Structure formats: structure tokens, C-alpha cells
Simulated assay, not measured.
Amino acid sequence: MTSDAEHAHPRHRLDDLLTHPVRLSVVATLAAAEEAEFGFVRDTVQVSDSLLSKQVALLEGAGYVQVKKGYVGKRPRTWLRLSPDGRAVYLRHLEALRDIARPVLGHDD
């Protein structure tokens, strides 16, 4: 016997935090690296320091991103890293997006 969850539309597997384009972009950037400096993520995602700080705070609060502060010489730096939970949520979110698009794309895989 199949459950309702097996037949639920894939949108139900999307993570609400990652439906925001900037947060999705931040997590995607971090998924490609072990860790990244705040300025690199800011420039890659093309947002202001303030906007990135707000989005990272939300992602950190959810346990998706880890933030480490330190210094390079005398200059303060902030490094961002995707947590194991954040990586798992991101991969599930991508899978749900693929499943939503699959009928349109005509892929059966």
C-alpha cells in the first residue's frame, strides 16, 4: 500500500528558507567549497554586506550555515561554511526542484 507522502507534490519537499533567491544562492555558493570568506560570497551572490549579513543570520539560526570570525593580519574576517544539515537540506531542495521540473523537461530519470 502506498502512502499519501509518496504521492505528494514535490513542492512539499522544498525548504521554506531556501525558496528565497539570495539564501538559495548563498547556500549554493557554500556547497561548492569547504568554506568561503564573507566578501567572496557577497561578491559571488552580488548583494550588499547588510543583505548578506541578514540572510546568513537566518541560515545560521536554522543551523544551515556556520560562521567563524577571525583575523588575517590585523584585518577582521568572517568565514562561512555549510553545515552537514545545511548540505542535506540543500540537496533535498535541489532534488525537489528537479522533480518539479522533470515533467516539463521530459526526463524520466
Rank of each mutant, 00 (worst) to 15 (best):
P103Q: 15
A28S: 07
E37I: 12
V27D: 00
P103N: 15
D109R: 13
R92D: 11
A62K: 04
S83P: 12
D4R: 11
V67T: 05
L52P: 02
T44H: 11
T29H: 07
K69F: 12
A33R: 03
S53F: 09
G70V: 04
A36S: 15
L58G: 12
V47Y: 03
A36C: 15
T78R: 07
K54G: 12
R81F: 00
V22H: 00
A5H: 15
Y90D: 00
V65R: 01
H107C: 13
L59P: 05
L91H: 06
H12M: 03
L80M: 05
Q55C: 08
K74E: 08
Q66F: 11
G63C: 01
L59Q: 08
H93V: 05
L17G: 10
A32V: 10
V45H: 05
P76M: 07
A57Y: 11
R11A: 15
L52C: 08
Q55D: 10
A62R: 06
A96E: 01
T78V: 11
L91F: 04
S3R: 13
A8W: 02
R87K: 11
G70A: 04
D4V: 12
T2C: 03
L91M: 09
V22M: 05
P76I: 02
D4A: 09
H20L: 05
G70W: 04
K69Y: 07
F38A: 06
R75P: 06
P21Y: 05
Q55Y: 06
R98K: 06
G61S: 02
L14S: 13
V104N: 12
V56N: 02
R11I: 14
R11W: 09
S53A: 13
A88P: 03
G86V: 06
V22W: 02
V104W: 14
G73K: 04
K54F: 10
V47Q: 02
S50K: 06
P84E: 07
A8T: 13
W79S: 10
R92Y: 07
I100T: 07
L17D: 15
K69G: 11
G73T: 08
P103R: 15
G70P: 05
T78E: 09
P10M: 01
K68C: 10
M1A: 11
F40D: 12
G39D: 15
L91G: 01
V26G: 00
V67I: 07
Q55G: 00
G39R: 14
R102I: 05
Y90Q: 00
A62M: 03
V72K: 08
G86Q: 09
E37H: 11
L82D: 02
L52I: 09
L17F: 10
A101Y: 11
T78Q: 12
K68V: 09
G106A: 10
H12Y: 14
A8N: 07
Y71D: 10
A33S: 15
D49T: 10
T29W: 03
S53N: 08
Y71V: 10
T78H: 01
E95K: 00
D16K: 14
V22Q: 03
L105R: 08
H9D: 13
S48F: 01
K68G: 11
F40E: 13
Y64Q: 00
V26F: 00
A8Q: 09
L97H: 03
G73V: 02
H12E: 14
L94D: 01
L18F: 08
V65N: 03
A36Y: 12
D99T: 07
E34K: 15
P10C: 04
S83R: 09
L91K: 09
G63L: 03
A96I: 02
A101N: 14
R87E: 07
G63S: 02
T29F: 03
V45A: 07
